[in-house]
């Protein structure tokens, strides 16, 4: 799972039937402080995230293990909207 920020939406009319009615969001990977990293991901929205949301992305075959994405041809899903991250320890 990684942290990401939703930066946009993908409009697509030609897609698998099981993806109909699901939002494809363009996300940019960030670190836990919210600083943007380099990679972009496209993920299916399972929690009604909006543009600018700080979210948690899940990948791979696990991404199909939600009600919304069961048996859909996807490999990335937004599983949570993050309110806050608390760092309690720092290691050397």
């Amino acid at each position: 799972m990684i942290f990401a920020k939703v930066i946009g939406t993908i409009v697509s009319s030609q897609k698998d039937e099981s993806l109909n009615g699901k939002k494809l969001l363009l996300c940019k990977e960030v670190d836990y402080k919210g600083n943007p990293l380099k990679s972009y991901h496209i993920a299916v929205d399972a929690v009604q995230a909006g543009e600018g949301s700080f979210v948690l992305l899940s990948f791979g075959s696990s991404a199909r293990m939600t009600e919304a994405t069961k048996n859909a041809p996807i490999d990335a899903v937004i599983i949570a909207i993050i309110d806050d991250i608390q760092i309690t320890q720092t290691l050397k």
Partner: peptide, 11 residues
Amino acid sequence: MAVVDKINYRD
């Protein structure tokens, strides 16, 4: 998995 018509985004 999908053909993109348009991308709305702000980096």
